[in-house]
Amino acid sequence: MNIIVCVKQVLDPELPPSAFKIDPEAKKAIAPRDRAPVISPFDENAVEAALRIKDAHGGTITTLCLGRDLDMAVVKKPLSMGADELVLLQDDAFEGSDSFATAYALATAIKKIGEFDLIFCGRQSADWDAGQVGSGIAELLGIPSVTPAQKIEIKDGKVVVERVVADGYEIVEVSPPALITVSNELGEPRYPTMKGIMVAKKKTATVWTAQDLGLDRSMIGASAAKSKMLKLFIPVREARCEFVAGETAEEFGANLALKLREAKLL
């Protein structure tokens, strides 16, 4: 099985909310200087899903990443986990691209890569939380999609996917080529091994620009966005926490119960 995994570099979502800052004028989040970006967590789940299939059935894994200001140490992580190739789509022309433009660029790059059986994406990115790009790539390539998955297995040449729904999961069968998005229910992604990190260091990424892909300029970048952002802001939290009194944890426990009774919550 040859698998293409689309990954995105994002601001570390584990950043404490108190350290999260935005530039309201530019309508953008400000990247903190002291914190490196990461691969969007669901995309790491997608890499893990691909690695599990490679472990069981062989094949190659190509990771594909679109963005500006990409940090090589970050975008090479899938290689150090065990992926084979890395293709970067880097161009200032992508600045301000929405899900549509991103899916268009990624789908075009996937056509250029050529042969593949499966495409995996994270269920949604940790910055915009939209979850549109995967379905968009599938639509543009005219292939079926299943979203979001907690388990992906190959049986007799078919792909059997456990699709997460509110009260459990559905078992869905699809034939390749297909696109599947992956959710955290798949389980923790593996850590890169020392050997993996050394191998990744030596690998060079293929870098393509908008021109290399022959992209229609009117379909990428901020001017092509389907929706216009009017405003980006950090909501004000109104709650003020009342800490229970006491000297020891044991007292806190008892006093918390009393407090809840006082507030008529118990």
């Binding site: 404490p16 909310p17 108190s18 939290r237 709650a239 003020r240 926490c241 009342e242 800490f243 229970v244 006491g246 020891t248 944890a249 044991e250 007292e251 806190f252 426990g253 008892a254 006093n255 918390l256 119960a257 009393l258 407090k259 809840l260 507030a263 118990l266």
Partner: peptide, 25 residues
């Protein structure tokens, strides 16, 4: 961060807070 959205809070190891909380409740 949870204390930034909470109405009532207890700062302590849950293993020590919960037994007396359960008992009092």
């Amino acid at each position: 961060n949870i204390f930034r959205v909470a109405h009532y809070g207890a700062v302590g190891d849950y293993k020590k807070v919960l037994p007396t909380f359960i008992q009092k409740c």
